[in-house]
Simulated assay, not measured.
Amino acid sequence: MDPSTAHPHPSRRAFTLGGAALLGAAVAGPLAGARRAAAAPPPGEWAAVPAPPLAGRGNLLGIAAPDPWHVFTGGTENAFQPDARAVMLHRTPRGWTRAELPEGLTAVNDVRAANAASAWAVATGQDPQERTDLLHWNGLHWTAVAGPAGQRLLAIDLDRAGGLWATGGSGGDDATVSVRRHGTWTTSLTLPEAAGLTAIAAGTPSDVWVGGTGRSSAPPTPLWHFDGADWTRVQWESAYAHWILQIEYIAPDNVWFYALEQHPLFPPPTLHHWNGSEFTVHKIPGPFEPLGEVRPMSAIGFLGSIASDGRGGVWVSSPYDTSHLLHFDGTSWTRETPPVMVTAYSMTRVPHTTTVWVGTQIGTVWRRS
């Protein structure tokens, strides 16, 4: 796998490691106290969906599907070239179209959609320190919208009341969480000595999680929870700090975390679960090991994603096994074959269904339904 990423700043979609040997970690038991998912993935199979091709090297880094008839997926084409540009594809009942974006953007890094006439995205220019745009889709056009004053955005999410949550920073040592309601931004959390908060999941206005990366392996894992009144730092019990790469919120007692341990042996990402009172950790199986068995592996990089399966479990795409898409139901792992052996850079589930959409590292689109 190519160890480079399609955008210069880290996000929950992208992280790079140097090659190294590692040892598999022991796995905690099945979900304690959580609602049990079904014993197998929802019925269906993965299939490639014809979509407009991207020029040169293309990556789809963000995807949102607010209903069964509409999909928004964005990323970059001609990646790492002087003419690299941001791209956004729309799917409607009439088919796919390419959307026009503001000039000078080179990558769309995150996409969220409340409905077919209201979607949000974070996009960057050639240097994200110099330009990061918050974009809004009004049903007809994508336009730049003012973000929190002085903040460079990293990740966004929509809560179930329509509030837009965003993590960011001013370029110094601070990290912030802001929320936009009725066109007005309010800073909800400021961390003066924190590294980037690159993952956010907003369930309801009173149930929001944010996480990111610490400055080294020594500090505690950066993870905070908002209960509607106060932010609380959540203890992550482990010998080494973790980088929280992605958070998938299903319910207050069913939250999934895709995390990377900041260990000197560069282990692969792991899947963690919060059941409302405690965490369990679940090792992601390698491509050739029997499901559930722990063996040594080799790490060459990371890019991947997770998404709810609609029945309490999750789908996982990992570069350590591009020949499979993995499903975890809270107790056991199963494997399914993707249309092409590449990594899913972005995954999302259509609300109230078990349909999952994927944007890949080669700019193609998959669906499981």
Rank of each mutant, 00 (worst) to 15 (best):
W69D: 12
T76D: 08
A55N: 10
P52E: 13
T76C: 15
R57G: 05
G74D: 08
G62L: 02
V71G: 00
A48Q: 14
P66K: 03
G62R: 00
G44E: 07
E45Q: 14
A65Q: 04
P68M: 04
G56N: 04
L54M: 09
P66C: 09
P68L: 06
V49P: 04
F72V: 08
W46R: 08
F72S: 00
R57P: 00
N59R: 13
P52Q: 12
G75M: 00
A48E: 15
A51V: 10
P43G: 15
G44R: 11
V49M: 07
L61F: 04
G75I: 01
P53E: 13
P52K: 06
A55Y: 04
P68K: 06
R57C: 05
G75E: 00
W46A: 09
V71C: 04
P66M: 09
F72Y: 08
D67W: 15
L61S: 04
A51L: 12
L54Q: 04
F72K: 01
V71H: 02
V71W: 00
G58C: 12
P43I: 11
N59Q: 12
T76M: 12
P50Q: 12
E45K: 12
L60H: 05
A47L: 14
H70W: 08
G74C: 12
A47K: 14
T73P: 02
T73N: 01
R57W: 10
N59S: 13
A64Q: 05
L60Y: 05
L61E: 02
A51S: 15
L60W: 02
P50H: 11
T73W: 00
A51P: 05
